[in-house]
Design a protein around this nucleic acid. Structure first.
Lengths: 142, 142
DNA sequence: AGAAATTCATTTGCATACAAACGATATTTC
DNA sequence: GAAATATCGTTTGTATGCAAATGAATTTCT
């Protein structure tokens, strides 16, 4: 017999736990970040640098898992700090092509230790095996 | 020798994966939710009902992992829909005590299947053992 | 070629989420 | 009992994040 009062336990729900886990990671990230980048801004800038081909704004957003509206705001803030610049696409007149600037590259290099530290801090309570397990499970989830 | 170009792989970072996993869960949640509640609103209302003692606004927020500013907005929206109501605390004149209404209770019961379905959908790709593993790992992370 | 559908970037509106500051009230400390 | 400290709820500002709509441009279909 299952106790009906305990059939749904909030603290056992994936969604609830995912929200709290990401929340904690964000706090650890922002604690360590010396370059004034949010997790999303960092991911976006990093993805732009590692891209093998030129990217439009929306294409970059998709690679980071953002919709167009969100991407617009993130790109605007990166532009305002001169971490990226845009060029008009000659072929498609709707499209901007995004490039990382030297400033952006140097900032990425400078904050990489912060970011790596925040990942380690987030996983600090897990053993090496458990960390791998968690990452694999999360990848399967997405 | 580690390839310096691959020393930091975005798609292997906890934070990045947590963000995408929660994003996917939210989408599945909102797809199924028939009662117009967000994940945060549902958690807040559910926590209020399961609470063993009267809760102030900030106390409820803490139980759901929200700061005071965020809690304010969530509580306002629940109040506007008459899902909760407030009473002034006699002892502490700064404090409101929150209570779930009958409407709120009925809504919780009505949407519980939606919410359970969204958790199952999120975990659908994992075996039963893997689901337990993931939940345990996430709890250790928080 | 022309119509239909898609994509690009943008805008608006709403809902978390945190930081920082605020006045009002309680509590603690001395 | 007065001062310092903490807590309660609130407000403002900033940053994701999604839905839905828009106009401009491109692609697809027939």
């Amino acid at each position: 017999m299952t106790d009906p009062n305990e059939s749904y336990v909030l603290d056992e729900q994936v969604g609830f736990l995912l929200r709290l886990a990401y929340q904690r990671h964000m706090a650890l990230f922002m604690e360590r970040m010396t370059g004034g980048l949010t997790p999303t801004q960092f991911s976006t800038l990093y993805r732009l640098r590692e891209a093998s081909e030129p990217l439009s704004q929306n294409a970059l957003g998709r690679l980071v898992g953002m919709d167009a509206a969100t991407t617009k705001g993130v790109v605007s803030r990166l532009l305002a700090r001169d971490l990226i610049h845009v060029e008009k696409d000659g072929e498609d007149r709707r499209r901007y092509t995004l490039f990382i600037t030297d400033t952006g590259c140097r900032l990425l290099d400078a904050v990489l230790p912060d970011v790596i530290g925040s990942s380690e801090a987030t996983l600090a309570r897990l053993t090496s095996t458990e960390r791998d397990q968690l990452l694999q499970l999360l990848k399967r989830l997405i």
